[in-house]
Computed example of a mutant assay.
Amino acid sequence: MADDAKGPRSVLFMCRMNSVRSPMAEAIARHGLSPSIFVASAGVRAGERDPFVDAVLAEQGMRLAGHQPRTIGDLEDDYFDLIVTLAPEAHHAALEFTRSMAVDVEYWPTPDPTVVTGSRDQIMSAYRDVRERLKAKVAERFVVGTPEIDAE
Protein backbone atom coordinates (compact mmCIF):
# COMPACT_ATOMS: atom_id res chain seq x y z
CA MET A 1 0.00 0.00 0.00
CA ALA A 2 1.09 3.61 -0.51
CA ASP A 3 1.64 4.08 3.18
CA ASP A 4 5.03 5.76 3.15
CA ALA A 5 5.48 8.73 5.47
CA LYS A 6 4.11 11.13 2.87
CA GLY A 7 1.30 8.93 1.56
CA PRO A 8 0.25 8.98 -2.07
CA ARG A 9 0.83 12.12 -4.14
CA SER A 10 -1.91 11.20 -6.60
CA VAL A 11 -5.12 9.24 -6.10
CA LEU A 12 -7.66 7.99 -8.61
CA PHE A 13 -11.12 6.90 -7.46
CA MET A 14 -12.85 4.45 -9.82
CA CYS A 15 -16.39 3.12 -10.05
CA ARG A 16 -18.53 1.72 -12.81
CA MET A 17 -19.67 4.86 -14.67
CA ASN A 18 -17.93 7.79 -12.92
CA SER A 19 -21.29 9.37 -12.16
CA VAL A 20 -21.99 8.60 -8.47
CA ARG A 21 -19.46 6.92 -6.20
CA SER A 22 -16.10 7.92 -7.70
CA PRO A 23 -16.93 11.60 -8.31
CA MET A 24 -18.38 11.77 -4.78
CA ALA A 25 -15.14 10.29 -3.39
CA GLU A 26 -13.12 12.72 -5.52
CA ALA A 27 -15.06 15.72 -4.17
CA ILE A 28 -14.70 14.52 -0.57
CA ALA A 29 -10.96 13.94 -0.99
CA ARG A 30 -10.43 17.33 -2.69
CA HIS A 31 -12.35 18.98 0.13
CA GLY A 32 -10.42 17.34 2.96
CA LEU A 33 -6.96 16.47 1.69
CA SER A 34 -3.98 18.69 1.06
CA PRO A 35 -4.17 20.56 -2.25
CA SER A 36 -0.74 19.09 -3.03
CA ILE A 37 -2.37 15.66 -3.56
CA PHE A 38 -3.67 15.22 -7.10
CA VAL A 39 -7.14 13.66 -6.97
CA ALA A 40 -9.20 12.44 -9.93
CA SER A 41 -11.96 9.96 -10.73
CA ALA A 42 -12.93 7.74 -13.63
CA GLY A 43 -15.22 4.87 -14.50
CA VAL A 44 -15.07 1.68 -16.47
CA ARG A 45 -17.65 3.35 -18.74
CA ALA A 46 -18.81 6.97 -18.84
CA GLY A 47 -22.26 7.59 -17.43
CA GLU A 48 -24.32 10.74 -16.96
CA ARG A 49 -23.98 13.28 -14.16
CA ASP A 50 -26.30 12.44 -11.29
CA PRO A 51 -28.19 15.37 -9.69
CA PHE A 52 -28.50 13.49 -6.37
CA VAL A 53 -24.70 13.51 -6.05
CA ASP A 54 -24.67 17.28 -6.49
CA ALA A 55 -27.44 17.62 -3.90
CA VAL A 56 -25.80 15.53 -1.15
CA LEU A 57 -22.41 17.16 -1.69
CA ALA A 58 -23.95 20.64 -1.58
CA GLU A 59 -25.47 19.81 1.82
CA GLN A 60 -21.90 19.84 3.16
CA GLY A 61 -20.46 22.68 1.13
CA MET A 62 -18.83 20.49 -1.52
CA ARG A 63 -19.34 20.49 -5.26
CA LEU A 64 -18.20 18.77 -8.42
CA ALA A 65 -17.85 22.01 -10.40
CA GLY A 66 -17.48 21.10 -14.10
CA HIS A 67 -17.08 17.34 -13.59
CA GLN A 68 -18.06 15.27 -16.58
CA PRO A 69 -17.99 11.46 -16.32
CA ARG A 70 -14.92 9.93 -17.95
CA THR A 71 -13.39 6.50 -18.37
CA ILE A 72 -10.08 4.99 -17.36
CA GLY A 73 -9.18 5.10 -21.08
CA ASP A 74 -9.41 8.89 -20.95
CA LEU A 75 -6.55 8.90 -18.41
CA GLU A 76 -3.94 6.90 -20.29
CA ASP A 77 -1.22 9.51 -19.88
CA ASP A 78 -1.88 10.03 -16.17
CA TYR A 79 0.00 8.16 -13.48
CA PHE A 80 -1.42 7.56 -10.01
CA ASP A 81 0.30 6.33 -6.85
CA LEU A 82 -2.97 4.86 -5.62
CA ILE A 83 -6.17 3.72 -7.34
CA VAL A 84 -9.15 3.24 -5.03
CA THR A 85 -11.91 1.15 -6.57
CA LEU A 86 -15.46 1.40 -5.29
CA ALA A 87 -17.22 -1.32 -7.30
CA PRO A 88 -16.23 -4.89 -8.30
CA GLU A 89 -16.21 -4.12 -12.03
CA ALA A 90 -13.94 -1.12 -11.42
CA HIS A 91 -11.61 -3.19 -9.27
CA HIS A 92 -11.12 -5.80 -12.00
CA ALA A 93 -10.57 -3.06 -14.60
CA ALA A 94 -8.02 -1.29 -12.37
CA LEU A 95 -6.08 -4.50 -11.81
CA GLU A 96 -6.00 -5.10 -15.56
CA PHE A 97 -5.06 -1.47 -16.30
CA THR A 98 -2.19 -1.50 -13.79
CA ARG A 99 -0.83 -5.02 -14.38
CA SER A 100 2.47 -3.65 -15.76
CA MET A 101 2.71 -0.65 -13.43
CA ALA A 102 3.87 -0.12 -9.87
CA VAL A 103 0.55 1.26 -8.67
CA ASP A 104 -1.27 0.36 -5.47
CA VAL A 105 -4.91 -0.66 -5.94
CA GLU A 106 -7.29 -0.74 -2.99
CA TYR A 107 -10.90 -1.94 -3.04
CA TRP A 108 -13.44 -0.09 -0.89
CA PRO A 109 -16.75 -1.92 -1.43
CA THR A 110 -19.34 0.84 -1.67
CA PRO A 111 -23.08 0.37 -2.19
CA ASP A 112 -24.68 1.74 -5.34
CA PRO A 113 -27.37 4.23 -4.26
CA THR A 114 -28.93 4.26 -7.73
CA VAL A 115 -30.59 0.91 -7.02
CA VAL A 116 -32.71 2.46 -4.25
CA THR A 117 -36.26 3.32 -5.26
CA GLY A 118 -39.03 5.12 -3.46
CA SER A 119 -39.57 8.70 -2.44
CA ARG A 120 -37.03 11.48 -2.99
CA ASP A 121 -36.26 11.33 0.76
CA GLN A 122 -35.52 7.59 0.57
CA ILE A 123 -33.26 8.09 -2.44
CA MET A 124 -31.47 11.05 -0.82
CA SER A 125 -30.96 8.96 2.30
CA ALA A 126 -29.19 6.28 0.24
CA TYR A 127 -26.92 8.88 -1.36
CA ARG A 128 -26.19 10.45 2.05
CA ASP A 129 -25.24 7.02 3.37
CA VAL A 130 -22.71 6.59 0.55
CA ARG A 131 -21.36 10.11 1.18
CA GLU A 132 -20.86 9.35 4.88
CA ARG A 133 -19.23 5.98 4.18
CA LEU A 134 -16.83 7.62 1.74
CA LYS A 135 -16.05 10.46 4.15
CA ALA A 136 -15.21 7.93 6.84
CA LYS A 137 -13.01 5.85 4.49
CA VAL A 138 -11.14 8.92 3.21
CA ALA A 139 -10.59 10.15 6.77
CA GLU A 140 -9.41 6.70 7.90
CA ARG A 141 -7.17 5.95 4.90
CA PHE A 142 -5.55 9.35 4.62
CA VAL A 143 -5.56 10.22 8.35
CA VAL A 144 -7.53 13.35 7.65
CA GLY A 145 -7.73 15.70 10.59
CA THR A 146 -9.53 18.59 9.00
CA PRO A 147 -12.78 19.95 10.40
CA GLU A 148 -14.43 19.65 6.97
CA ILE A 149 -14.11 15.86 6.94
CA ASP A 150 -14.58 15.32 10.68
CA ALA A 151 -17.61 17.62 10.95
CA GLU A 152 -21.09 16.35 11.83
Results as ranks from 00 to 15, higher is better:
residue 16 R to S: 15
residue 2 A to R: 13
residue 149 I to W: 09
residue 35 P to N: 10
residue 27 A to E: 05
residue 26 E to R: 12
residue 35 P to G: 08
residue 119 S to L: 03
residue 45 R to M: 14
residue 120 R to D: 05
residue 43 G to H: 10
residue 18 N to C: 11
residue 81 D to F: 07
residue 124 M to C: 05
residue 52 F to G: 07
residue 120 R to V: 00
residue 98 T to N: 00
residue 121 D to L: 01
residue 141 R to N: 11
residue 93 A to C: 01
residue 72 I to W: 10
residue 27 A to T: 00
residue 140 E to W: 04
residue 7 G to V: 03
residue 126 A to E: 04
residue 52 F to A: 02
residue 20 V to A: 02
residue 118 G to Y: 07
residue 111 P to N: 07
residue 94 A to Y: 00
residue 120 R to N: 08
residue 46 A to L: 06
residue 144 V to D: 11
residue 2 A to P: 14
residue 47 G to M: 04
residue 103 V to F: 02
residue 125 S to A: 10
residue 84 V to N: 07
residue 132 E to F: 01
residue 42 A to D: 05
residue 87 A to Y: 10
residue 101 M to H: 14
residue 22 S to W: 01
residue 61 G to M: 03
residue 94 A to D: 06
residue 108 W to K: 09
residue 83 I to N: 02
residue 105 V to M: 08
residue 24 M to D: 04
residue 149 I to M: 09
residue 119 S to A: 06
residue 14 M to W: 02
residue 70 R to N: 04
residue 151 A to F: 11
residue 71 T to V: 09
residue 74 D to R: 12
residue 13 F to R: 06
residue 19 S to D: 05
residue 22 S to A: 11
residue 150 D to G: 14
residue 150 D to N: 15
residue 13 F to A: 10
residue 49 R to T: 05
residue 102 A to H: 11
residue 77 D to F: 12
residue 33 L to G: 06
residue 23 P to G: 08
residue 132 E to W: 07
residue 114 T to K: 15
residue 84 V to H: 06
residue 58 A to Y: 00
residue 103 V to Y: 05
residue 8 P to F: 04
residue 12 L to A: 10
residue 134 L to Q: 10
residue 5 A to H: 11
residue 86 L to M: 13
residue 79 Y to S: 15
residue 47 G to L: 10
residue 41 S to P: 01
residue 90 A to L: 05
residue 42 A to R: 02
residue 124 M to T: 10
residue 55 A to W: 04
residue 101 M to S: 14
residue 4 D to H: 12
residue 56 V to D: 06
residue 113 P to V: 00
residue 63 R to V: 09
residue 24 M to A: 00
residue 98 T to M: 03
residue 107 Y to H: 13
residue 45 R to A: 13
residue 43 G to S: 09
residue 27 A to V: 00
residue 117 T to Q: 13
residue 25 A to V: 05
residue 47 G to Y: 09
residue 85 T to V: 03
residue 93 A to N: 05
residue 152 E to Y: 15
residue 30 R to H: 07
residue 21 R to I: 04
residue 57 L to V: 02
residue 61 G to L: 04
residue 72 I to E: 02
residue 141 R to G: 07
